Simulated assay, not measured.
Amino acid sequence: VTTWNTREAPPAHFMIKIESFSVLEKYGIKKYETKEFVAGDYKWRLIFKFNGKDSDYISANLAMADTSLPTNWEVNALFNVFLFNQISGNYLSSTGRTLCFRPTKSEWGISKFISRKVLSDPSNGYIIDDSCVFGAEVFVVKTEAVIERVLLMNVNTYYNHALEISGFSQLPQRWVSEEFDAGGEKWKILLYPKENAEGCGSHVSIYLYYLGTERVQTCFTICMKNQFDDKQTRRYFFSYWFSASSSSWGRPVYIDLATISDPNKGFIVKDCCLLNIQINVKAVARVS
């Protein structure tokens, strides 16, 4: 049974008004094919079946009517059927279906479009003065999809990178580590020692920065060692897909400036900060 939506706007591509609707049943007319109409640069027609396989329902089909198509043609189209409610002034619309039309299957439709009982009940507003109005929208789906091929390489390598950053109080606003290798990929550490990367002067920011071009799934932990008490060491865990367009990930509010600047807290000792980056490269996606 068709799932319906309701809207005020009429169908965009085709409408048909059937007058003397009762004549169809009176004379046992089982099928009616509409004239051709154009949608999406193709010719179509609607086919209504009034006494089909499911005789308690009226079926509504869409058929390709274009005869100038090349051999082995294929057209994908989103198809909606409409029925006008002459009391409310609204249109019932079937839930759109994307259908594939080809030489071996040039007609698709809805076998249980609407029940004869519901359609024929005057209080429902679909048949007034023995006439009713149907409609259709056909939106051709252009084959312009971007195709991505991915080869997932199971790397699953671990790497531990230790950094001893001296002269911490003299670092520039943005400090970049030397390049290092992990999991067959190249990385750097980005550190904002005086304010976070968003420009707020309350926290230090730390990021792992990827220098490659592939997509790399990585789990990593950034540790700032507490040189007085290892239990107070700051550790943050991350999981991220790195790529050329998403090359850095970390924590913009890693540690507040008041804490890291306090010589009694143990994060900066003799103007030296100790970082440890634990990297687990899970997989590399080779995209083509």
Rank of each mutant, 00 (worst) to 15 (best):
T2Y: 05
T6S: 06
T6I: 11
R7F: 06
R7E: 12
A9V: 08
P10L: 08
A12P: 05
F14M: 05
M15R: 04
F21V: 15
L24Q: 04
L24W: 08
E25W: 12
G28R: 10
T34D: 03
E36A: 04
F37W: 03
G40V: 03
G40N: 03
D41T: 03
I47P: 11
F48Y: 14
S55A: 14
Y57N: 09
A60H: 12
L62W: 12
L62K: 11
M64Q: 07
T67K: 13
P70Y: 03
N72M: 14
F79C: 07
N85I: 11
I87T: 05
S94I: 01
R102F: 03
S106E: 11
E107M: 13
I110Q: 06
S115D: 05
R116P: 03
Y126V: 00
Y126R: 01
I128S: 09
S131I: 06
C132W: 09
C132G: 09
V133M: 08
A136G: 07
A136V: 04
A136W: 01
V138D: 01
E144S: 15
A145T: 13
I147T: 15
L151K: 15
V155Q: 08
N156F: 09
T157G: 00
N160S: 13
H161I: 15
A162M: 10
I165K: 04
G167R: 10
Q170S: 13
L171W: 13
V176N: 11
S177G: 00
S177C: 01
G184M: 01
E185K: 05
W187A: 02
I189T: 05
I189E: 00
L190V: 02
P193A: 02
A197K: 07
A197E: 04
G199I: 00
G201Q: 10
S202N: 06
H203I: 00
H203V: 00
L208I: 01
Y209R: 06
G212C: 02
V216S: 07
Q217Y: 11
Q217A: 11
I222N: 01
M224T: 00
T233C: 02
T233A: 00
R234Y: 05
R235V: 02
W241N: 04
F242E: 04
S248M: 11
V253W: 13
L257G: 09
A258C: 13
T259K: 12
D262Q: 03
D262W: 03
D262K: 02
G266K: 04
G266A: 05
I268P: 14
K270M: 11
C273W: 05
C273N: 03
A283H: 04
V287S: 12
V287I: 15
S288Y: 15
